[in-house]
């Protein structure tokens, strides 16, 4: 058996099936957005992956609503962030954080990944108007990385204690940076109203 030969998994099947439509869609997107799409990374042949598009921050809302409404990528599978502080490019470009969207096409079952680069202390407008489910994802990103989302209705910590200082998934947060609280987390008085 040749191990380099693609194995007919369900994903591999989708990969071969989607490659032409992905190419078509990305060409179309590049025509309409031009310079706003900074980078396109296609999955390698017979590799289980999806295309990754890096889009400029100014155009990201327009781009995502286009993907949602005109390309049927209507389901937000995952919305998270990464800290690229140790990356070589960080010193050149000063783009510390990346927001990562994983989108799912509910009609053709294809997936796509969209990234936005943010520098430190830079905020971005909320995505709740596109996907209501982005609400808690944005709270988690704020909790773990300290990225501010403008226009979010309720941007407070979701996982960590509300008395916690710092944002634990940042690269400069110490791995064993314990913060001990002797009493349970006090209830937010706002919630009782």
């Amino acid at each position: 058996m040749d191990i380099r030969k693609p194995v007919a998994t369900i994903y591999g099947y989708f990969q071969d099936k989607f490659s032409p439509t992905w190419n078509e869609q990305i060409l179309k997107l590049r025509e309409s957005y031009g310079e706003a799409i900074e980078l396109v990374v296609m999955p390698m042949e017979s590799n289980i992956d999806m295309p990754t598009l890096t889009v400029k921050k100014e155009k990201i809302h327009e781009f995502l609503s286009d993907l949602k409404n005109n390309y049927q990528y209507s389901f937000l599978t995952d919305f998270t962030a990464t800290d690229e502080k140790d990356d070589e490019e960080f010193e050149k470009t000063n783009h510390r954080f990346q927001l990562v969207f994983h989108l799912f096409n509910t009609e053709t079952k294809a997936r796509i990944r969209v990234k936005v680069k943010l520098s430190e202390n830079e905020s971005i407008a909320t995505f709740i108007d596109l996907w209501i489910g982005a609400n808690w994802a944005e709270r988690e990103i704020f909790d773990m990385f300290g990225i501010q989302f403008e226009g979010h209705p309720d941007l407070r910590r979701i996982l960590m204690d509300m008395r916690w200082e710092g944002h634990p998934l940042r690269k400069d947060y110490p791995l064993r940076g314990y913060q001990i609280f002797l009493t349970p987390e006090p209830l937010d008085p706002e919630l009782l109203k």
Partner: peptide, 10 residues
């Protein structure tokens, strides 16, 4: 978890 520890104590 650290957040659960005071609850366990309670």
């Amino acid at each position: 978890n650290l957040k659960m520890a005071p609850v366990l104590r309670n």
